[in-house]
């Protein structure tokens, strides 16, 4: 099988397998961010507890807002630079 087709097939299998895992997994589905839930848990077993961050986003949806804002700015930057890369010819001229 040609390499391109092999890779396409591999991607399809991986995506199907991941979706299958999602619906049929036996794992507990808390989907908690493991930096909070687990790293801190194992550290607590050894007497280390996390401190609040220096700039504390507090409770409520502030953190959600910050992540959304960061994602939007990062996405805009990625799109902007991607466009300037693919719209530029190797000689430096724009299409």
């Amino acid at each position: 099988m040609p390499e391109k087709q092999r890779f396409k097939l591999l991607y399809i299998i991986l995506i199907a397998a991941l979706l299958g895992c999602f619906f049929f997994t036996r794992a507990p589905r808390s989907y908690v961010g493991v930096d909070e839930a687990v790293l801190e848990k194992i550290a607590a077993e050894h007497g280390r507890k996390p401190r609040r961050p220096f700039i504390d986003p507090g409770e409520g949806d502030i953190l959600l807002f910050l992540f959304l804002g960061a994602g939007a700015i990062g996405g805009f930057m990625a799109g902007y630079y991607w466009r300037s890369i693919v719209d530029t010819k190797p000689d430096g001229k724009e299409h």
């Binding site: 961010g33 493991v34 996390p50």
Partner: peptide, 15 residues
């Protein structure tokens, strides 16, 4: 099926 540990190390976890 098991819980897992990951991501950046949080504030104050390291001495």
């Amino acid at each position: 099926a098991a819980p897992a540990y990951a991501m950046h190390i949080s504030e104050g976890l390291l001495p």
